[in-house]
Structure formats: structure tokens, C-alpha cells
């Protein structure tokens, strides 16, 4: 199936999802659905770097929160800017951070990159905590508009649609890459870097592309967050649960294809939404940790691997 055809199909699926959510009529569906969709974007973005090229990013929270804080800054300085423009800005900032990090650490062994991303999350949080303009450690309040600016309905429906479209974009991009020249280059890097170089693959440039693309999508996913939570502080924006979820979802779904992160995010995201309501949020996080460890030990190819023989 061609990329355009797949993209149209994904849009139809998105439209059906939105229509179904509206038919249920309960605003909680949009609040919960938004979080699941946000994880679809994050997991897919993570997998472009982690699954395709084999470089593990522990700093999802940093890329994500940088997108969110870009929105906080823009909301205070240019409040008239529409949300999609803020998302582009947040994506650009996070992509640049990814590029910078990658440039410094991607020449080294993959583990050093991973450790650096972990440390970077701590530092980005330190910077934001000390930056009073965005509220410092006290956090920032954002007023959520009441109504959607483009169709009749609550603003949360608008946020839901935005995240739905971003998920479509992320999945279509991830799928297109997988079947493209870029995808073969990424796979070669993941499998054997010296052999990839010897085959003419410009490994450093491709790794930088993957890092920037992955970081940029994460930043875009974080940009609407301030409007969703209406109160954002560093501890919640940089929560470790973002990093754990975004790693757990592709690994549970399967990292080799675009489908794995999608399955993982929908399953695990929905499970957590249910568990948070019915049990407790701490226990639902514990569940994610246990599932992650369980899957990497027992099912190295994830759920998708069960259906491939």
C-alpha cells in the first residue's frame, strides 16, 4: 500500500474514532483518549530512534516537557498564536535539542548516548525549575479556552482532534520511513554500524536525522499539554513515567515495525487509564514497570512477534 493511500486510510480511521467519541458524549472519553493518543505519538517517535536505529533514548520527558514549556512561554508572550503554530515551535525546539545532544554523543557507543539522555532530563528539569518566567518550581497556570475554535464543541474535543491528527502524522511518517531508503539505512545502523558505513550509509547523519525527527515529534506531543492540564510544574512535566511508558510501549508492542508502538500505546495507555480509575495511579505505574521487565525477558519481539513466524 502506498503512503498516500495509507495516510488517507489513517485519516478515515481518525474520523471514525472522533465520531465514535462524540457519539458516546461523555467528556471523560476525550480526556482519557487524549492521553492514549499522546502516548501513540510518543511511542512512535521513540521507536523511530530506538526501534529503527537501536539507540535508546531515556530522555523522552525532557523532549516532551520542552515542547510543553515552549507553549507556556508563547502563551505568555504571544497569546494569539494558534495551538498548531505553538506545536511547530515546540517541535522545532525539541528537534534542535535532539540534534545538539546527538552531535555530542552519537559518535560514541550507544550506551553513552542513552546515559547522556537520562542525565539531560535531570538538567533540563533543573533549568526549568530555576527559570521564574515559566513559574519555576511553583509551576505555571494556563487558562484553557472554553470552546473549540474551529468546530462546535468543548476545547477538550479540539485538543483531542489535534492529538488525533498528530498521531496520524506520526504513524504515517514512521511507516513511510520503514519502507524507504532511510529505513534501510536505519536498519543497517541498528544491525552493524561499521558494516553500514562500509555499505555507503552515512551513519552519523542518519542518526542525527532520527534523533531530530524523534525529538521533534515528542516536542510536538508535549506542546498542547499546558492547555490539557491547565497547571504545569516541572515535577509533572518531567515525570519519569513518560520515559518509562514510551520505552515500555514499543518494547511490549514490538520495535521492528511501525505497528508495534501503536499496539503497545493503545493497549498499555488504555490499561493505565482504566487502572488509574479503578485501582490507583501508583499501582498502574508499577504495572507498566513490571510489564516492561516481563516483556523484555520473555517476549523479545513484543506482541507483533507473536503473529510473525
Amino acid at each position: 500500500m502506498g503512503n498516500i493511500r495509507f495516510g488517507l486510510l489513517a485519516l478515515v480511521a481518525a474520523a471514525v474514532t472522533f465520531a465514535a467519541a462524540r457519539a458516546i458524549g461523555n467528556p471523560y472519553v476525550f480526556f482519557a483518549g487524549y492521553v492514549v493518543l499522546q502516548y501513540v505519538v510518543l511511542a512512535t517517535a521513540w521507536n523511530i530512534l530506538g526501534g529503527y536505529t537501536g539507540y535508546v533514548n531515556f530522555g523522552t520527558a525532557a523532549f516532551f516537557a520542552m515542547g510543553a514549556y515552549t507553549t507556556v512561554v508563547l502563551h505568555k508572550t504571544v497569546p494569539v498564536l494558534p495551538l498548531p503554530a505553538m506545536m511547530l515551535a515546540g517541535g522545532a525546539i525539541s528537534a534542535l535539542i535532539g540534534l545538539g545532544m546527538g552531535y555530542l554523543t552519537l559518535r560514541l557507543r550507544g550506551t553513552f548516548f542513552s546515559i547522556a539522555t537520562l542525565a539531560m532530563a535531570v538538567v533540563a528539569q533543573t533549568l526549568i525549575t530555576n527559570w521564574n518566567f515559566v513559574g519555576g518550581s511553583r509551576g505555571a497556570y494556563i487558562v484553557r479556552p472554553r470552546l473549540s475554535p474551529i468546530f462546535p464543541g468543548d476545547y477538550i474535543q479540539y485538543l483531542f482532534v489535534i492529538m488525533l491528527l498528530l498521531s496520524v502524522l506520526a504513524v504515517v511518517v514512521a511507516r513511510a520511513i520503514q519502507h524507504s531508503r532511510l529505513g534501510y539505512g536505519f536498519a543497517a545502523i541498528r544491525d552493524d554500524e561499521p558494516a553500514a558505513e562500509a555499505s555507503g550509509v552515512p551513519t552519523l547523519r542518519l542518526k542525527l536525522i532520527a534523533t531530530a525527527l524523534s525529538g521533534g515529534l515528542m516536542g510536538m506531543a508535549g506542546a498542547p499539554l499546558p492547555y490539557y492540564v491547565t497547571y504545569l510544574d516541572p515535577a509533572s512535566g518531567f515525570s519519569l513515567s513518560y520515559a518509562v511508558n514510551t520505552i515500555a510501549m514499543p518494547l511490549i508492542g514490538g520495535t521492528a515495525t511501525w505497528l508495534g508502538p501503536l499496539i503497545g500505546a493503545v493497549l498499555l495507555g488504555t490499561l493505565q487509564q482504566v487502572a488509574t480509575v479503578t485501582i490507583s495511579s501508583a499501582l498502574s505505574l508499577l504495572l507498566v514497570g513490571l510489564l516492561l521487565v516481563g516483556f523484555v525477558i520473555a517476549a523479545p519481539k513484543g506482541i507483533v512477534g507473536w503473529f510473525q513466524r
Binding site: F58, I247, A282, L290, V296, I297, P300
Partner: peptide
């Protein structure tokens, strides 16, 4: 012979499990 990605994720999962358990 697959210590890289999954091994890292394994320890990351342990880190998270330990933290959440202590919180609980």
C-alpha cells in the same frame, strides 16, 4: 547476544519498579 536495547530497558524497568514500590 542481545544485551543492548533490551538490557538497558530491563534495568530502566527495575529502576522504575524500585522507585514506585518505595513510594507505595
Amino acid at each position: 547476544g542481545d544485551a543492548s536495547i533490551r538490557g538497558l530497558a530491563f534495568f530502566f524497568g527495575l529502576l522504575f519498579i524500585a522507585e514506585v514500590t518505595l513510594v507505595l
